[in-house]
Design a protein around this nucleic acid. Structure first.
Lengths: 300, 300
DNA sequence: GTTCATGCATAAGTCCTCCTTATGCATCCT
DNA sequence: AGGATGCATAAGGAGGACTTATGCATGAAC
């Protein structure tokens, strides 16, 4: 099978359709000179002119016309087959995310993604472990981490995993309201064992070590759990604000102080660098970054 | 129109047809690694595997099978359209050559070229002047020259334009045979004005200047003419051996001495560098170089 | 079980094709 | 005549398309 230079065929087909090298260049996001060059290459290969040059446009020769018909048909078939393969393969986007993000952030917004991309089904896998995207056949992951550097993965920071105390208004009312950081120590704390508490009280200039040490300690490791307990009035939670915007908005949780801590961790979107151009991954990435920008006012 | 990387499609189609990256590489004159890479690029773009890798071969996935069908069809259409454009434009190969070469060399062999390439008609233009290939719309030229360097032209040396005395056996017999170079001075010389004579006698260690000066001088500038006269017994000719192999073979001419001179000139095939890939030009070039190699034992 | 052959995957390196930029020329329009 | 339009081409750059080298997995043979 003797084939012409395929790059030249692309330029040729566009020029033939548009009767203009300049317009072909525009369509292909190239320069006129590049198109001119490719046509020349092809004409040299074919052995005769494919276009008659006129002042303001080009006109196909007989030979050019015949080749253009074949090229047009071939490229159309190829484009359609490719599109079919791409969208057919697009089917399901698999997302691995920690339960907190799934429950508190993604669940509220994923509908928006699916409305924008009806062809993409979403499979959500929640897990606290860090999954191997390649090995587990996962398209994208949502993780926490410091620097967002994972070998072979592209990453985008979604928002900081900061922490601040939050509680239900009813719990606050049990002590007549929370006016200063030390007031929190008069209330139950959902997870006193959470290391964020010690860090936050340090920030607030309160020595709360004895108080915290004296409390029942647990190991929740789940913002989702802690948040629900806080909403239910079980105790004060120390939560990432971004994960509880809805609750803060509807008043089921209040953030009594502006003091916000951060241990350097953030939430990250990750996917395999090598697959960055996969359509469903790009679609999700673009949607997510836009959504994050809108909800945090942050440029990610 | 969204198209896949066309280079990748070529590799993919071959691998799909042959169920093997290694065999596809062989067919495409590439390495297995290049094919593997291109398939990977394409799979990344499509978003899922196109092949299932097995130990000794690869197998198309469902998606791969569908894409292969489209790719195969598209490339077939393209190859056919291209071939039609090429051969349609191939029609006639125009050759410009000096009369000597046309008459003495090409005429004896051109049939072989036409048998090998029945689709290519040949138009022969003989002229002693150096033609401008581009301006005169000539595909290839045969010229003499020293270094074979002409602006914008690709050149291949065919054989050296050497010279040595040749005569018919009957003429030689008129003086009882030719045993030493000086014997030639007892015979008529077809073109004593040919500068090659003086050069040859110098090589032979003979002072023939007075003898040559006393002879009728002409200006033939044609090996073909000189050769015919020699064959007819008119006189001794000083000829390029390569142009008279047939006559030397059939005994109508003899070369009495091994002394062969050369003034640095050779016979060259030339064509426009920019058109070196034009099929009919390539076909002729390849055939000619092969023919020369066979007839001279020379690697051109 | 061991060894060897086969064949795809991938990293590192090279280079040439595919462009871009700059400029020139021809034609057309005002 | 001047300006706009658009193709042609030379010079230069760079990244995609390879190559080479090597590793890994599988299957076959002993």
């Amino acid at each position: 099978m003797n084939l012409p230079p395929l790059a030249a065929i692309r330029a040729f087909e566009a020029a033939a359709r548009l009767s203009s090298f300049t317009r072909a260049a525009e369509e292909l996001a190239m320069t006129q000179a590049a198109v001119s060059y490719q046509i020349k290459v092809l004409e040299d290969r074919v052995g005769q002119p494919l276009f008659t040059r006129k002042a303001r446009q080009v006109e196909l020769t007989e030979t050019g016309r015949a080749l253009a018909a074949g090229a047009s048909e071939a490229l159309r078939i190829l484009a359609e087959s490719y599109e079919q393969a791409r969208t057919g393969g697009q089917g399901t986007l698999s997302i691995s995310t920690i339960p907190t993000f799934a429950a508190n952030w993604l669940a509220l917004r994923l509908g928006s993604f699916q409305i924008a991309h009806p062809a993409i089904a979403v499979r959500l896998e929640t897990s606290d472990r860090v999954v191997d995207l390649a090995q587990d056949n996962i398209d994208v992951g949502i993780r926490t981490g410091g620097k967002g550097e994972w070998p072979g993965l592209a990453s985008h920071r979604l928002f900081m995993a900061d922490f601040t105390p939050m509680l239900s208004p009813s719990l606050a009312a049990t002590i007549g309201g929370v006016r200063e950081p030390a007031d929190l120590l008069r209330l139950p704390i959902v997870d006193a064992g959470d290391p964020w508490w010690a860090m936050w009280f340090d920030l607030a200039g309160i020595d709360a070590r004895e108080n915290l040490a004296a409390r029942t300690r647990s190991q929740l490791n789940s913002q989702a759990f802690e948040g629900r307990a806080a909403v239910a009035g079980v105790g004060v939670g120390i939560l990432t604000r971004e994960l509880f915007t809805a609750e803060l908005d509807n008043g089921s949780l209040i953030q009594p102080f502006d003091i916000v801590g951060n241990d350097g961790h953030a939430y990250w979107l990750v996917y395999q660098q090598a697959r960055r151009n996969v359509p469903k991954i790009r679609a999700f990435r673009d949607w997510l970054l836009k959504e994050i920008g809108a909800s945090t006012g942050m440029v990610a």
